[in-house]
Design a protein around this nucleic acid. Structure first.
Ligand SMILES: [Mn+2]
Ligand SMILES: [Mn+2]
Ligand SMILES: [Mn+2]
Ligand SMILES: [Mn+2]
Lengths: 160, 160
DNA sequence: TTAAAAATGTAGCCTTGGCAACATATTTGA
DNA sequence: TCAAATATGTTGCCAAGGCTACATTTTTAA
């Protein structure tokens, strides 16, 4: 007998292709999880780096300067600082400047070192400093220790 | 006369340092805005690339396969696909597979080309393929056209 | 044919990180 | 000294992207 096409929510759709055993690309999923993890850590890293920089420049990091330098509103800065405080990276009191905990300082040092390597690597590769500056701010968070070493090797060979 | 320290919300804090004219680092803010923009476009790029890949492999992209390959739940896939649909990158119907619009296909091509260059560049630099695979998935979104050209130059010189 | 399995849809919840608007505190300068 | 300017705090809103739990549809296989 001829089967009448069922009219359901899907309407008159072509049937899905039979799948049987489709190979699961577990590697790919792992890469995306790795990127998501990097993005979770990114804000903290950029902030502690910036706070360390402002302290080096002015002796303290203030909300208004963070807002200007990060390009966001002061409300966003306040919310982020609260998270950094919660996570033990900064200390701050109302209407006072923000400072780093030892853990925050350590993270800032590591991040600045990595950031500098990435920036100088891009420059050594022939990228204009202004472009290298833009790209490094994002790339730095996705560079594994192994790749960072490769960048350093390249810098040693191509030191001007 | 000696001024008694006011007891306000801030408690007894050291006064903030006088700031006068602090130089505004406008460049730095621009870099962070640039990164935020890249992150806004990232999900769409990764998804259309993956959808194109699944279509090339199986003739269609299904929710369950996207979930496995992106490493997220099928609920997340559904929500994201709704956004891609809203933005004109995919077409889909309930309980049916997902396909790319011409715009989605174009984006997928561009992203795959860029992804491949980044991956091969890292490998050429001496990074192990497994690590290059992980790093490329994040780095690709933070590479400007100028830096991409620098990567290609390097690849031409170091083709094995 | 049909029950079970698999896939898909949907609702509600969460965190992050944006914003504007308004409230309060501090600093500055006349 | 004190009013104005500046800085900070807070509230409430939003979108993106995660999740679980449960509902529904489709596909598979007995
Ligand atoms: Mn950064
Ligand atoms: Mn990123
Ligand atoms: Mn990616
Ligand atoms: Mn990719």
């Amino acid at each position: 007998m001829k089967k009448i096409e069922t009219l359901t929510a899907s309407g008159s759709g072509e049937p899905l292709k039979s799948r049987r055993k489709v190979p699961l690309d577990l590697d790919r999923a792992a890469a995306f999880e790795y990127v998501r993890q990097a993005h979770q850590e990114e804000t903290a890293q950029d902030y502690v780096e910036m706070i360390a920089d402002l302290i080096a420049q002015h002796g303290e990091a203030r909300v208004v300067d963070l807002a200007k330098n990060m390009g966001v509103s002061h409300a966003t800065i306040n919310k982020t600082i609260a998270r950094l405080n919660r996570d033990g990276l900064v200390v701050n009191r109302p209407y006072r400047a923000i400072f780093l905990t030892p853990e925050g300082e350590s993270m800032a040092r590591d991040c600045k070192a990595r950031h500098d390597i990435v920036f100088r690597f891009l420059c050594a590769l022939g990228v204009k400093p202004a472009t290298a500056h833009l790209d490094a701010e994002g790339v730095e968070h996705h560079i594994s220790p192994e790749t960072l070493k490769a960048f350093e090797r390249f810098l040693k060979k191509h030191k001007c």
